[in-house]
Design a protein around this nucleic acid. Structure first.
Length: 925
RNA sequence: GGGUGGUUAGCUCAGUUGGCAGAGCGUCGGCCUUACAAGCCGAAUGUCGUGGGUUCAACUCCCUCACCACCCACCA
């Protein structure tokens, strides 16, 4: 084995072997265990969020596979309607081609071609991450079979009256000229203005040139005003209700109406009502039978309902002109700065327009109730549990879901119209004619709209498994076990899967949902291309030099002016570029960072630390193999040392913890427990304790064999425990380890996950090793503090040792001599003169290191004083507690006794150290 | 306005039935000791956000407030 761990050499090799051997395919034996991958966008590429979630899923999948479960990680990609269409439109745009120039059919063909061309990127990247998904069952949301599921669901929901078509005010994206759903709108707080406009009142009884002041953040929509509203109880305006307004810039008269929607304390207490362009106004309009005047085209230019001079203007140009015109007319009272929430599209960031159109909707309320119930009853468990609140809150106030999109890329809605506009819904035209008994001479045309991408995503847990057919896969793996996903798509996806799953299969789609936090950069900022702070997981694996990284970050920016700042920050943050850390280190980092909060700061120094951990494992393995080379391990007489028994015992604890933490989705604690055990118990102590046995010529063959087998067995178990998180390095080492532990199993990923064995848990052994460690630590402390060279051997004298201490010294002499680098250990008897020495205490026993020029008297005095001070602080605290009668009377007896013991131990330690100090003073004088 | 999460060492974070505050990174000192300098040995470091309450005992349970994030709704 190479001296240094080099991930590049091993990772690709093992993935290819695993995939070729079909190890990722379910075995067909054991309990089914299934995770659905949240399908990434087919033409997308892997980002940190994927890396993170996939690492956790793969850890679970590999763990369950090693448990012998019939394990399926269902993989696939999403057609991602808007995103993909956007990318292809932009690409065509670069060639000067507009989609309408080439028409729907050709455009869709272009998208398919782009899908085929770039669809492999993310799946290749997943291979680099070691994701053990079953590639043989890869699915795409627009596969025939999945499209069929989409149609089936649509038709049934329509037939049951749960899907309907209607004219409603919807969120409209004027860039894509498509409706979007409520959850795709992001309200961002932005600086804007509140324009106060004078609306002239028309009434004989009122003096000439009277105005109502109307404040608005969107002056351009005034052209669509249908009324001005005041609060019914507002005394200021009582006399005006029912009168009319001359709507400025138009020739329309609009009524003054009373509606309790108006807040009389805000602004002037008068609100312009624009039913076709505002959700609240829409409701008011319905209540008062106001006309819905749509003044925008699909791309938010003013249409024929606006006065001629404004027609054709883009909405924000129109705003400028309208304000200027109002000002000219003296109708602009004032303009004040105002912070408002601006609705923007989740994809593309365009400002969304409430727009009146015909769309398809899912009536969600009837589907929502069962979906609420299954979470309430615990049939679906959320981890962390508090996400239930978010879920309930949304589900209990759920609005109908607008599912139609005026796009070309997606599942075309299976609905047909006749010339009269009647709607017919079925899988295809033939089916329509049959179902509705339509003669062939009735002309039918199919709905142009496609479905919201999330409509097919909602079916993912069962459509991928073959539904509506009752396939073996569906019967075996549905309901799936756990969904691992980000909380950001709880409404988009999680809620809808639960609703659709219950509706169409009668079962929950998964039993548990594990919500991950959001990966942010080291400063806590969201990673985004725009900010130029994204990290590509592949770059963390392979490394990237600074110039390439800078280039990558500023290439193809939507806001090119950000480039300079991004470049500066990047050069500052990664002056050396990014080193190659390897997949295992990255995966382990993801696991270690997977705490239960919402945000996770990704810190490169953590990654570096875990890369070092990989190296540590690598070198530990090298050491173990070095000890086994050319050794006969078949000897039948085996003798286990204290250390051998101890590490086996500690190993049981870590097995138990690993299992517990994995089963409760505490990947952070799993990583922590294994890191601690491997580095600080196995490497720091056990490997060191193995040396006195293996390097000792006088040790028996049985003893050496005992240590050798313990070394190899412990390493073997460690590899199995680590494998779900770090598949590559563990497989590589394990393949070499096999020569010492013969097995029929061809790959570590098919091995059995270690089980806790209570018989190997030996508390006495653990206590004895703790004693041993304390002795060594005490001596090392003196060595370190007194600056005695590590290579310098010296004599240790033992004073006041109990019989047990003495026995332990005899038994563990060799361990102590080697690990503490001692020349000799001598026990003082009552008659012996106690020399001037540096002192360490282990319980009641004193370890003395005679000065002999090794130790400086004043340095030792300082050290002792420091120690005494520490102890006295403790003693004072204990004393205080024990003097408090409330504590003594009320606390459990055991707790009080414990406290008494602590005080006693501390006090006797102080006495001892003080004695030592006095002795030193004598030496000095 | 409703809701959620957070506030613990210089930094990033653990702390699961209330019983002596932990890790990694960083810092300081000493070491190329035979698996590992991506390493080894040693050391320092905390009003556990504020103020109350419950309790013999609170980082932990309850309440108040502050600040930082985020989600939902929304006043034009």
């Amino acid at each position: 084995m190479d001296k240094t761990y080099n991930p590049k050499d091993i990772e690709k090799k093992w993935y290819e072997i695993w995939e070729q051997q079909s190890y990722f395919t379910p075995t067909g034996k054991g309990d089914p265990y299934c995770i659905m991958i949240p399908p990434p966008n087919v033409t997308g590429s892997l980002h940190m969020g994927h890396g993170f979630q996939h690492s956790l899923m793969d850890t679970l999948i590999r763990y369950h596979r090693m448990q012998g479960d019939n394990t399926l990680w269902q993989v696939g990609t999403d057609h991602a309607g808007i995103s993909t269409q956007m990318v292809v439109e932009r690409r065509l745009g670069q060639q000067g081609v507009k989609k309408h120039d080439i028409g729907r059919e050709k455009f869709v063909a272009e998208v398919w071609q782009w899908k085929n061309q770039s669809g492999g990127t993310i799946t290749q990247q997943m291979r680099r991450l070691g994701n053990s998904v079953d590639w043989l069952q890869e699915r795409f949301t627009m596969d025939d079979q999945l499209s069929n599921a989409v149609q089936t669901v649509f038709v049934q929901l329509y037939d049951e009256g749960l899907i309907y078509r209607g004219k409603k005010l919807v969120n409209w994206d004027p860039h894509f000229c498509s409706a979007i759903s409520d959850v795709e709108v992001i309200n961002t707080e932005e600086q804007g203005h509140l324009w106060h406009i004078r609306y002239p009142i028309i009434d004989q009884g009122v003096a000439e040139k009277s105005f109502l002041i109307v404040a608005t953040t969107r002056p351009e929509t005034m052209l669509g005003d249908a009324a001005v509203a005041v609060h019914p109880d507002d005394e200021r305006y009582q006399h005006l209700i029912g009168k009319h307004i001359q709507l400025p810039l138009t020739d329309r008269l609009i009524p003054i109406i009373a509606d309790s929607y108006v807040d009389p304390d805000f602004g002037s207490g008068c609100v312009k009502i624009t039913p076709a362009h505002d959700f609240n106004d829409y409701e008011v309009g319905l209540r008062h039978q106001l006309p819905q005047i749509n003044i925008f085209t699909v791309s938010a230019h003013l249409n024929e309902n606006a006065p001629k001079i404004y027609q054709g203007l883009e909405r924000f140009d129109a705003r400028k002109k309208i304000i200027a015109d109002l000002e000219k007319l003296g109708l602009l009272e004032k303009v004040v700065d105002h912070t408002l929430k601006v609705p923007r599209a989740d994809r593309g960031n365009t400002i969304i327009e409430p727009y009146l159109t015909d769309q398809w909707f899912v009536k969600v309320a009837p589907l929502a109730q069962p979906a609420i119930d299954v979470v309430k009853s615990g049939k679906i468990k959320f981890v962390p549990e508090n996400w239930q609140n978010t879920y309930f809150q949304w589900m209990e106030n759920i609005q109908d879901w607008c599912i139609s999109r005026q796009l070309w890329w997606g599942h075309r809605i299976p609905a047909w119209y006749d010339d009269a506009g009647n709607i017919y819904v079925a899988d295809n035209e033939t089916e329509v004619r049959k179902k509705y008994k339509l003669s062939d001479n009735i002309k039918l045309s199919q709905e142009e709209d496609v479905l919201d991408t999330w409509f097919s995503s909602a079916l993912w847990p069962f459509s991928t498994l073959g539904w509506p057919e009752q396939t073996e896969n569906f019967k075996t793996f549905y309901p799936t076990n756990v969904l691992v996903t980000g909380f950001d798509i709880i409404f988009f996806w999680v809620a809808r899967m639960i609703m659709m799953g219950l509706k169409f299969t009668g079962k929950v789609p998964f039993h548990e949902v594990y919500f991950t936090g959001l990966i942010r950069d080291a400063e806590g900022h969201k990673m985004s291309k725009t900010k130029g702070n994204v990290l590509d997981p592949i770059d963390l694996i392979d490394g990237i030099d600074l110039e390439t990284l800078v280039k990558k970050r500023i290439e193809g920016l939507m806001q090119p002016w950000m480039a300079e700042k991004i470049e500066k920050n990047t050069r500052k943050e990664f002056p050396e570029g990014i080193a190659a850390y390897g997949t295992d280190a990255l995966r382990f980092t993801y696991c270690a960072l997977a705490t239960t909060g919402r945000d996770i700061r990704f810190d490169l120094s953590r990654l570096e630390g875990y890369r070092n951990f990989c190296n540590k494992i690598w070198n530990a393995a090298r050491y173990v193999f070095m000890q086994l080379e050319n050794q006969d391990l078949t000897e039948d007489k085996v003798e286990l040392s204290l250390a051998d028994q101890w590490i086996q015992s500690k190993l049981q604890t870590v097995i138990k913890e690993t299992r517990k933490h994995l089963e409760t989705y505490r990947f952070d604690l799993t990583a922590q427990a294994l890191y601690e055990f491997v580095w600080h118990e196995f490497c720091d102590w056990y490997l060191e304790l193995s040396k006195p046995v293996l390097l000792n010529e006088t040790a028996s063959a049985a003893a050496k064999l005992g240590t050798r087998t313990t070394l190899i067995n412990t390493l073997n178990t460690i590899l199995k425990l680590l494998h779900p998180m770090m598949p590559f390095i563990t497989e590589e080492i394990w393949q070499q380890l096999k020569q010492y532990c013969p097995t029929e199993v061809p790959s570590l990923m098919l091995e059995k996950f270690p089980e806790f064995n209570i018989k190997l848990k030996v508390p006495d052994t653990e206590l004895e090793v703790e004693w041993l460690q304390q002795v060594i630590l005490g001596i090392r402390n003196i060595r370190g503090e007194m600056n005695i060279a590590p290579s310098k051997q010296f004599k240790v004298l033992i004073n006041k040792a109990s019989q047990e201490d003495q026995d332990r010294f005899v038994k563990n002499k060799r361990f102590l001599m080697t690990l503490a680098k001692l020349e000799s250990i001598e026990t003082l008897t009552a008659n012996d003169q106690i020399p001037a020495a540096a002192t360490a205490l282990v319980n009641k026993m004193e370890l003395l290191i005679p000065l002999h020029g090794l130790v400086d008297v004043s340095a030792e005095s300082t050290r002792l004083n420091k120690e005494i001070e520490k102890f006295e602080k403790d003693a004072a605290r204990y004393r205080g507690k024990l003097q408090n009668s409330k504590f003594v009377d009320n606390a459990p007896v055991a707790i009080v006794a414990e406290e008494k013991q602590r005080l006693f131990d501390t006090e006797s330690a102080i006495t001892k150290l003080k004695n030592k100090l006095e002795q030193l003073q004598l030496v000095k004088s």
